[in-house]
């Protein structure tokens, strides 16, 4: 099962390596990882998605929580949090009809067109990872040339719990 873990860390040198290294060392697979500043000074937030059973994830949280530079760790449960990912996808266009189809689909999904060249169209897809997966599937018959995804970020719906 996929879990989304929110790790609040001190903005210290190497903190990302410490967290990612611990995952690798203990054999936990990272699916996506994102990091960025927060509203509190000196603190950054790392969001990691990983696949594993509940017991493994409990161990992950505890082991990560022991790192000196980690302030708090908690899981973002799907029901109590907002999860988002950003994806840029470059699709090949071949003829007017196909271009219109792509734009039509993009509009239905409320995706933004961020670039158009004679041969390509680049879309900005934002949403939950599943939405991105679904849309990319839809685009695949047109010919996806390249995809860049940011990895998942998220936030709990209530004020953050201390772990």
């Amino acid at each position: 099962m996929r879990h989304t873990i929110c790790i609040l860390v001190n903005d210290a040198p190497g903190v990302m390596t410490r967290v990612a290294g611990l995952f690798a060392r203990r054999g936990y697979n990272i699916d996506t990882i994102t990091v960025g500043k927060t509203n509190s000074r000196g603190a950054s937030k790392i969001i990691i998605t990983a696949i594993g059973d509940d017991k493994t994830m409990e161990q992950v949280e505890k082991q990560v929580g022991k790192l000196i530079d980690v302030i708090s760790v908690f899981e973002l449960k799907p029901d109590d949090s907002v999860i988002r990912e950003l994806c840029l996808a470059k699709i090949s266009i071949n003829g007017r009809k196909r271009k219109e189809d792509i734009i039509k689909y993009a509009n239905v999904y409320k995706n933004k067109i961020v670039d158009i060249t004679p041969k390509t169209i680049t879309l900005e897809i934002m949403g939950e990872p599943q939405k991105i997966d679904t849309f990319l599937e839809l685009m695949s018959p047109f010919g996806i040339l390249d995809v860049s995804r940011t990895g998942v970020t998220g936030i709990s719906r209530e004020s953050p719990k201390k772990s």
């Binding site: 040198p13 190497g14 390596t17 410490r18 290294g21 611990l22 000196i68």
Partner: peptide
């Protein structure tokens, strides 16, 4: 040494 000792220390520092 920060890289080398990371997995075998409770914590490590490089004083900059």
């Amino acid at each position: 040494m920060i890289g080398v000792t990371m997995p075998i220390t409770k914590h490590n520092f490089q004083i900059r």
